[in-house]
Design a protein around this nucleic acid. Structure first.
Length: 940
RNA sequence: GCCGAAGUGGCGGAAUCGGUAGACGCAGGGGACUCAAAAUCCCCCGCCCUUAAAAGCGUGAGGGUUCGAGUCCCUCCUUCGGCACCA
């Protein structure tokens, strides 16, 4: 490479262009399978091409890039691919707003965002790139669907959606705001339509068990998935309905059966419709329940309400009549759509019963209450309590303090009736033959009884529901199904796939072009040859994002995957936002098992390690508007005022100098106008500075607050580092620079090279001899090797990039204080700077690419250089500082050899003036010595 | 409502296994350099009391365990993420 920039001052745009050109010219990051090397597949969640890169993307892909480059410097064969999650709702919205076909809008966005990713310098193998809207991609998805259809893994059933009665269209949950359509403002209705489902519940147990074999996944994600899957063991019990019919309910608490005081069914339950036939008030309530959206958050936060149907069920044990209510919190499609309510021992049932004055019956008692009852029951003559009698008490003995025991019981009962339910496990009371049993025994006894009577059975229930994959939208992958009047739903034959989505469409309204075009759907039945119609629904976009990771391994394959997948899979490190903890990551795991069962992959889980990064937030500023709203002002347009201690006292708009209000730090968004455009930051500071700040400002799993002053701090650090290296390399007689030049083959531009080329290079290749170093040199060298160890550990094991960068800053601070210009001093400085260039490379690859050359090396791919190794010998300390405490409070410190004996440490600690003063004339009762850490003297 | 996280100086954060709370950076104060500014460099910087030294207080709130708690346990508060059709 000839001189293209002046190396004396740091010029990010020239440095970055040169490095990127080198990577691109040498195809540095294109990889192939190599059985001789350890593979490393580092994957970041693929972006939705929304138009431009946002800070969340920058953060996500920088994390992936740091891990990828680090892994490659450790000698691994690293794959880091990129693609586009191209189908989805925003393209349809853009189409309506801008009058541009979704396909065109999407592909324009991809082109722009690809260029932005390249400007960030990510080490991506671009040869594997694809967009999920490419027919060459989704054809395999359609084939897989047909395969699953034939296996019986797919079925069609009615399911409820948000219906906008004005726009006559199905709305996404996101498009329902306060129960109304976002565009029309009409009150949304629930509507049932037939949809396709994938039997993810067949894999529920495996998805649950698999979590235990994912040590590299965050516990929070695994817990959320466990709870989402929601395995519960219980009984399904049939309640006969008075006058005919029956209701099936599922309960995990059969032990509370005798406490059932009402049953509740969903408004959509057939029994509700039956009861409402002659009851207008009931019908009105059912109609009311139809209003509003279908999201669980909306249903669960709604006020719990219900109406008595007037129908009664018969208790399966006592035959007692139990009222049946319709309740708006009973979800149809979960379990049986009906439940038994036990207000004494369930919080929601209790709330409902209190509101509608339904009876509350206590049938489970805690252990202390049980003991009190037994105490009372010892004297059966004096005791008429049904509960204690029921507990099977026998031998009458004198009760020492009957009043105290009675009080416990009364208090417990009162608490349930007035304060709230007892929801724990305990002992059954008021339960006839089952009195005195615990949860397990009651469960078993009732299960046996109902199984014998044919009235119920043990059952495992899951909260997880099957995956509804139909969407009533245009911009998605067409579902390859043909509807024939005689043959029913028939999958499209293999040789007719893909069913291509027409891309050149007018999309101005709310109706899908697939549905409004009478021609597209016309076809013939593959079975009988008669006239038939295509499915006009498309797949949920989670379908595409569930297997893209596997397709990256087999670019261009005619089949969905080929043998190359076996080399790369599973993913070694997956990185994405925590917002995907449940849905995407569960579908991703599910799909991998489907691929496995089709023989396409040979592992059980798609990714061994997972990192969920936090959001990118920024401060918000606003002014109140006369109509009570707020005008949000971008942080870039605001000046902040501070007092002499640096505290913020106010903010003003740059344009008019008048005050603006300061809001909270929130996720960057259009609505709060607090987004910072990564492109502006790259243009102003360079990609390396942007990368460095986004890794330094917070650990990856926490939210990151964007702060431009902080970005300037990173730019300062890089300029200092640059300047120090240039100054060091400019010393014409530098011994190590000569050594570096000796091994060099091509001419280099930086002026360090000029000096280096003049040197003869002889007698200069010696390593530093640690034995001859003076104390200051030893200290710096120790810090260097401690830093090497820490940076590797922080990146590789802890994934704490912020502390890795902090330790590199500390090392540079120490180096700048090290002014030793002897040969040994300069050689040591050279060792430090070379190591720092390599250690910083994952974060600032462009600067490292250039500075490596300034240090006298030929232009090379730094990722192919070995990661520095820490020398344990260099890290040995002659002495350590121990904290000395008296009663846990710090009273002094002392320096001692790391292996100093306990007695010596104790004696020296007790002699410290601060310790003497704190102990005073108190007796020393105990001394705790933790070698290398602390001495704590317990006195008093 | 349910599930999962997080709360530490003026700010972002550090403290990795229960062992000196505040590394590193930002902001701020003081100084050097400069005709001046920018850039750069040096010093200070948790709160409180104080001339100073020293003491005291301090990790959202309240309890607990421990020689010792930011870290472990219990209760509560606040904020954030998810809740199946946003991606």
């Amino acid at each position: 490479m000839q001189e293209t920039y002046d190396s004396s001052a740091y010029n990010p745009s020239a440095v970055e262009a040169a490095a990127q050109k080198f990577w691109s010219d040498t195809r540095a990051f294109e990889v192939t399978e190599d059985a001789s090397r350890q593979k490393y597949y580092c994957l970041s969640m693929l972006p939705y091409p929304s138009g431009a890169l946002h800070m969340g993307h920058v953060r996500n892909y920088t994390i992936g890039d740091v891990i990828s480059r680090f892994a490659r410097m450790q000698g691994k064969n690293v794959l880091q691919p990129m693609g586009w999650d191209a189908f989805g709702l925003p393209a349809e919205n853009a189409a309506i707003k801008r009058n541009i076909p979704p396909a065109k809008w999407t592909r324009q966005n991809i082109a722009h965002m690809r260029a932005q990713l390249q400007a960030m310098g990510f080490a991506i193998d671009w040869s594997r790139e694809f967009a999920t809207c490419d027919p060459a991609y989704y054809v395999h998805e359609q084939r897989m669907f047909v395969r699953l259809f034939k296996q019986g893994m797919v079925y069609r059933k009615n399911s409820v959606v948000n219906w906008d009665p004005v726009d006559q269209t199905v709305l996404a949950n996101e498009q329902v705001v306060d129960g109304r359509g976002w565009r029309s403002g009409a009150v949304v209705e629930k509507r049932e339509i037939p949809q396709w489902f994938l039997k993810i519940t067949d894999y529920a147990q495996e998805l649950l068990d698999g979590l235990d074999r994912l040590p590299g996944w965050p516990d929070a994600v695994k817990t959320m998935q466990r709870n989402w899957l929601g395995r519960s063991e219980g009984l399904e019990i049939r309640f006969d309905v008075e006058g005919g019919g029956a209701l099936e309910v599922f309960t995990t608490r059969p032990d509370t059966l005798m406490g059932v005081t009402y049953l509740a069914v969903a408004a959509e339950h057939p029994l509700a419709a039956e009861a409402a036939k002659h009851n207008p008030a009931l019908q009105a309530f059912i109609d009311e329940c139809r209003q509003g959206g279908v999201s669980e958050a909306e249903l669960e936060t709604r006020e719990k309400r219900g109406v008595d149907t007037g129908l009664n069920a018969l208790h399966p044990v006592t035959g007692e009549r139990i009222p049946i209510w319709i309740a708006n919190f009973v979800l149809t499609g979960y379990g049986t759509g009906a439940l038994m309510a036990v207000p004494g021992h369930d919080a929601r049932d209790w709330e409902f019963a209190s509101k509608y004055d339904l009876p509350i019956r206590m049938v489970i008692v805690s252990d202390p209450v049980r003991d009190a009852i037994r105490e009372l029951g010892r004297d059966a003559d004096d005791n008429t309590s049904a509960m204690s009698a029921a507990l099977g008490q026998s031998k009458p003995i004198d009760v020492v303090e009957p009043v105290a025991a009675e009080d416990v019981l009364v208090e417990f009962e009162n608490h349930i009736l007035t304060e709230g339910p007892f929801t724990g496990h305990g002992t059954l009371v008021n339960s006839g033959d089952y009195d005195g049993l615990d949860f397990r025994h009651a469960f078993d006894a009732l299960a046996k009884r109902f199984e014998r009577e044919g009235r119920g059975r043990r059952q495992v229930n899951w909260r997880l529901r099957d995956w509804g994959i139909s969407r009533q939208r245009y911009w998605g992958c067409p579902i390859p199904i043909i509807y024939c009047a005689t043959c029913g739903a028939v999958p499209v034959p293999e040789d007719q796939l893909p069913v291509k989505l027409p891309e050149d469409v007018a999309f101005s309204g709310v109706q899908s072009p697939l549905k409004s075009d009478p021609e597209w759907r016309k076809c013939t039945c593959p079975q009988c040859g008669g006239a038939a119609e295509r499915e006009t629904d498309t797949f949920d976009t989670f379908m595409e994002s569930s297997w893209y990771y596997a397709r990256y391994t087999s670019p261009g394959a005619a089949t969905q995957l080929d043998r190359r997948a076996d080399y790369w899979l599973p993913v070694d490190q997956y990185i994405g936002g925590i917002e995907h903890a449940i849905l995407h990551l569960l579908y991703f795991r599910f799909y991998h098992k489907l691929l496995r069962d089709a023989g396409l992959v040979h592992s059980d889980e798609p990714a061994t390690k997972l990192l969920c990064q936090g959001m990118v937030v920024a401060e918000t500023y606003y002014r109140d508007t006369p109509d009570g709203g707020k005008t949000w002002i971008n942080p870039a347009d605001v000046d902040v005022q501070r007092d002499e201690k640096g505290r913020i006292t106010g903010a003003t708009l740059k344009a008019d100098g008048r005050p603006v209000s300061i809001g909270a730090s929130e996720k960057m968004s259009k609505s709060k106008n607090n987004g910072v455009d990564p492109q502006l930051m790259i243009d102003k500071y360079g990609a390396d500075t942007v990368r460095l700040f986004s890794m330094f400002a917070a650990p990856p799993d926490q939210s990151l607050e964007w702060n431009e002053a902080g970005v300037e701090g990173m730019a300062r650090f890089l300029r200092r580092f640059w300047r120090d290296i240039v100054a060091h390399a400019a010393q014409p007689d530098h011994p190590r620079m000569q050594a570096a030049a000796a091994g060099r083959t091509d001419p280099l531009s930086p002026r360090a090279g000029e000096a280096a080329r003049k040197a003869d290079g002889e007698n200069t290749r010696d390593e530093i001899d640690p034995a001859t170093l003076n104390p200051a040199q030893k200290t710096l060298r120790r810090q260097l090797h401690e830093t090497i160890a820490k940076v590797g550990d922080d990146i590789g094991r802890r994934r704490n990039f912020n502390t890795a960068i902090a330790s590199l800053m500390e090392l540079l601070n120490a180096l700048e204080k090290f002014t030793d210009m002897s040969d040994a001093g300069r050689a040591l400085r050279h060792e430090v700077l070379e190591a720092m260039v390599l250690l910083l490379n994952p974060f600032t690859p462009h600067a490292s690419h250039a500075l490596w050359q300034v240090l006298g090396h030929p232009e090379t791919l730094i990722e192919d250089l070995p990661w520095p190794t820490a020398d344990p010998a260099a890290q040995v300390r002659a002495s350590v500082t121990l904290a000395v405490q008296v009663n846990g409070k710090l009273r002094g410190t002392l320096d001692a050899a790391p292996d100093a004996p306990r007695e010596q440490l104790e004696a020296r600690a007790r002699a410290l003036p601060g310790v003497v003063a704190a102990v005073g004339d108190k007796a020393v009762r105990k001394v705790i010595v933790v070698p290398g850490k602390i001495v704590n003297i317990v006195a008093g």
